[in-house]
Design a protein around this nucleic acid. Structure first.
Lengths: 206, 206
DNA sequence: GTCTATACGCGGATAGAC
DNA sequence: GTCTATCCGCGTATAGAC
């Protein structure tokens, strides 16, 4: 394809607007205004609005996957990597405060619309779930790695939702701290693994 | 007002549809069909769609408040009462699986629409926050009752979001069990109070 | 209080010129 | 590849008869 930049512009702007205003509430006129193209020109790049949604989800999958790979390579230990995940709540705090979690809110909206792209959006959550699972396996928690991944994902989603609802920075910070404490307790419990430097405490079942 | 039943029917149906389809995606035609009135007749009862939203939020506030008062009177101890809250995830499981949490998803949608009723919807969350806070105070946790309330609310929101996303009953059950374990640990830590029968363990800081 | 008919704008989508 | 012009249906809202 000769000129992909307009197409990419559309997807980029749509990604942002779908996040800030929601998929349904975002019109072609909204996107066109920011991309600075006419509405008619859209249809040269996408047949329908749903096609744009598909492209946005695809872009998010690629973007998030790249982020996870970055965390994977930058983090020296599974704990460090998982902390990168936990820290999104702080790093993207301003946006989450205003618009919630991009993945959680999109999934929720598509569920209510009973939209065909729902399954596709579900893969976004799955991406994080599998990545986190792998980190917990690396921490020696093969048996319940998936449950731990889901639990952490759940915590993060809850914190994002309430941050958006109450706009309380102190709350998010407390939740982040608690997640990290929880993670440390996991490490203390689990058998030692490669790249995991923490001292061993006796296991404490709670 | 002579005949309130039509108005109440509208609000009841709108409440349900706003939950299942979202506020924006619900049209007057959708509501009219279920209430079995003509679209024109709407405007005898409500001037605008936003007015219906206000009435729905008001109804939810009343309904939820009644539910909390019921838990208050039925629960013999704060722990029992808080468990009633935790158990909504199971009791309303089928609906949450399909549509998420009615309060969380409405709040999130209104945030994206930047809707005037946003603040009003925020009172719904606040209702639960304050009620939970009171329970934790009754458990002797005056100092951090609000933080505990927010934490539990957060857990519940996260579980609802992921239940909706992954449709996994086992996950919700695990989260519910964990919340109750966490609650038990709180009780074990806190000084004994009226109506709290649990034996005292030594405090264990996490 | 309920209805039918209708206005009006917006959003998605198409046709066709340049 | 981008534009203008236009269609069409839907959704909110209004007018006015019964």
């Amino acid at each position: 394809m000769a000129n992909r930049s307009t197409r990419d512009d559309i997807v980029g702007v749509a990604d942002d607007l779908f996040y800030r205003k929601g998929f349904e509430h975002t019109s072609f006129a909204d996107i066109a205004e920011l991309v600075k193209i006419s509405r008619g020109n859209f249809y040269h790049h996408f047949k329908t609005k749903d096609d744009i949604l598909d492209a946005v989800i695809q872009k998010r999958l690629v973007d998030r996957n790249a982020m996870l790979e970055r965390w994977e390579s930058e983090g020296k230990t599974p704990v460090e990597r998982i902390c990168s995940f936990i820290d999104i709540l702080i790093l993207n705090g301003e946006k989450i405060k205003l618009y919630g979690c991009p993945i959680g809110t999109l999934t929720s909206e598509l569920a209510k619309l009973n939209h065909a792209a729902r399954e596709n959006a579900g893969r976004l959550f799955m991406l994080f779930r599998i990545w986190l699972r792998r980190q917990f396996v690396a921490l020696g928690r093969e048996a319940d790695a998936d449950a731990l991944a889901m639990h952490l994902l759940s915590q993060s989603q809850g914190a994002a939702t309430l941050f958006n609802a109450f706009q309380d920075e102190n709350f998010v910070q407390r939740e982040v701290d608690q997640m990290k404490d929880w993670l440390k307790a996991i490490v203390a419990k689990a058998p030692n693994r490669i790249g995991d430097k923490g001292p061993l405490h006796e296991p404490v079942d709670g």
